[in-house]
Design a protein around this nucleic acid. Sequence first.
DNA 1: GCGACAG
DNA 2: ATCTTGTCGC
Length: 265
Amino acid sequence: MVTSHDPRPDLAPQADLSREEMESLQREIAEAAIFEDSLEVDLEALSSPLEAAAAGAETPIVAGVDQSFLLDSEPERALSAVVAMRGGEVIERVHAVTSLEIPYVPGLLAFREGGPILAALEELSVDPDCYLFDGSGRIHFRQAGIATHVGVVLDAPSVGVAKSLLCGTPRGDLENRQPGVRVPIEANERVDALEGTVLGYAVQTRQYDSPNRSINPLYVSPGHRVSAETAADVAFDLATSYKLPEPIRLADAYADEAKRERGRT
DNA sequence: GCGACAG
DNA sequence: ATCTTGTCGC
């Protein structure tokens, strides 16, 4: 069912909370999160803009978000980069440099990078229909990874794309799978969810021709307002030329580019 | 105490 | 994530 747009800035990740407060806020985020497709956004159109246009639909805007770090400065700083795309074309790039308050702790990534990310997103002039983050969404101890946290705060469809698995159990073999293959990631005892709940998918976007070596899959999970299936579809469909979905790959490159530009000035 | 652990 | 050259393979 479609509910009204309801941003929750009150649930934004604050780095000055105690660990217990952070964890309870994450449980609150998980309850507010919607792990199924909602809103009238046609996410199918993200991958096939031409067909969508022919059908009279508006071409959706997808934003990829990623960070680079300036660990030598005191305090450490994060450079959050955002690349917005529409129909396969980059329509806007923005970034923001922010001081980091706390160190990286597995499970609490949103409290380290969420602030910087929200600061960068405020610089955006366009309004994305979906956000792709580097990190987990529902594949998280409390079902509240950074993609879910930021998605709920903005109340916008979001997807988490991680390069390694934080928790959960793959339901099948992950070695040498063909492009397009997806293996369910189920909740295990380490996750606050019914055992066996499908948290997301290991999505194979690329693979070598010879079975000698194997390319690792991407661990894709719902952030907010998208189902695990749609999240996997979106990540795979946007990975048109490389292993990573194009918006994230470009945000990753832009984050490094902007960092070097900054040091050279 | 031991193991596990996104970026 | 970041520090970093070369190098193996298509």
